[in-house]
Design a protein around this nucleic acid. Structure first.
Lengths: 134, 134
DNA sequence: TTCTTATTGAGATTATATCTCAATAAGAAC
DNA sequence: GTTCTTATTGAGATATAATCTCAATAAGAA
């Protein structure tokens, strides 16, 4: 099934790049709608799927929240702040090799993994110290 | 807000234990409904939340699928087979310390992490060799 | 036994994502 | 340039996981 180049597909790719890292499908949809109010939500979702299958962008599935899409900058995973919900990048150099070590043990053919850290970001730590002093 | 001991809460805890590891909320709901057809889905979800906050059970959020709940056997994470959707356990002894190493770098206060591996299980590898020989 | 209020059940609602299908348009064939 | 095939689109319906609403119920302290 040969892929065609559509305006909508380019718009999605451009928006992902413009928004930098970890935008949700909905954020990308809203971004595109500013200039192209007629684009369909389904089209954005479809093209995010197509583009990540093609390897043009990277999908990061986040449990308990919407998937996020990255320009393929470099490998990293995410921390989500449990208070404000914002998502930050985490370098994962030291995680490299994780798959290999597990493949050895299970006969599983690994294709990847998602790691999502949970925590409280520095801002929210400070905020709660001000509002709830002990 | 003092917690009360309700029949429904015990039923949920028992079902999680009975189903062993990585049952979804819906599987737990169906399990309980066999003997107690009047239990509400909301009650199951509510008690799964309460019990995991209390530390009685462990919640494993899985991106792209329903959350799963474990009896607190021992620390492990999960691999989901991309073909059959089944979920298997993976030991994670060597991942211990991950949080500490990241906390140092970011000023983030970490409360935990989820790791979900993706891959193809041995069964499905075999099946696809039979069905699509090269 | 009485009283307070945490908890429940039923159904509505939210959020994320996918599906349906007629209409459109990309790009190959002519 | 014109025709043709079919991938893609837009709009809205649907699916799935989970939470919320609220009157009724019941746990457990008084």
């Amino acid at each position: 099934m040969r892929k065609r180049n559509t305006i909508q597909r380019s718009l999605v790719l451009e928006a992902v790049n413009r928004l930098q890292c970890h935008a949700t499908a909905d954020e990308i949809y809203e971004e595109i709608k500013k200039d192209h109010p007629n684009i369909s939500r389904a089209t954005v979702y479809r093209n995010l799927n197509v583009l990540s299958e093609m390897g043009e962008i990277r999908r990061m599935e986040t449990p308990g929240g919407a998937d996020r899409f990255d320009h393929r900058c470099h490998d990293h995973c995410h921390v989500r702040c449990q208070k404000c919900g914002r998502v930050f990048d985490v370098d994962v150099d030291f995680i490299t090799g994780l798959e290999q070590r597990i493949r050895d043990a299970h006969g599983f053919e690994f294709t990847g993994y998602d790691i999502l850290f949970r925590g409280i970001c520095p801002d929210c730590q400070n905020a709660s110290q001000k509002n709830e002093p002990k």
